[in-house]
Design a protein around this nucleic acid. Structure first.
Lengths: 84, 84
DNA sequence: GTGTATTTGTTCGTATGTATC
DNA sequence: CGATACATACGAACAAATACA
């Protein structure tokens, strides 16, 4: 599992889902999670962050909409763009 | 309130939020809801469609991300782009 | 092939906060 | 202040796709 510690500050004015999305984005753009490598699973992120499933899902959705990750149902979510 | 009947087919393979997003999008692009005119409120859409608040919000979020609508906190959601 | 576990997708319900009128 | 409207977050349930023993 590739990924540094994730820290969510509940009292920050920045929404939790945005904090998580930002940290995941950084992990991807920095190459810490190379293209085609799986992101941490939703369940893992729930345990790691203490956030609710829906909140984590929302954060991941941000990356997907941003074209930084893609999902394969039943498999997982991967860094980079879907394709060949 | 500008807007034709909204119909959600629960048994359709197309997710409810996408059905709603599509119908709202059509209402905007067709000019049925002109730029700067308010979209139906979340609560209204909840009553009209029978969907849950979160599901309706998700549909509206699709339009906002697509640049077809913008939100003014405490006021409402409007067709077109935010700006002047 | 079957059954189970994992993972994502959709949906609902509810509570609290913030902004506007 | 009270009503309205959007924003964030939590909790829970069920379906579908995939992986694996």
């Amino acid at each position: 599992m590739i990924m540094e510690r994730i820290v969510i500050n509940t009292h920050s004015p920045e929404p939790s889902y945005q904090q998580l999305a930002r940290q995941l984005r950084d992990a991807i753009t920095s190459g810490q999670i190379p293209p085609r490598e799986p992101l941490p699973s939703i369940q893992y992120l729930v345990g790691e962050t203490g956030l609710a499933v829906n909140t984590v899902r929302r954060a991941v959705a941000v990356l997907i909409e941003g074209g930084l990750a893609y999902t394969v149902p039943g498999r997982g979510t991967y860094a980079g763009k879907a394709g060949t």
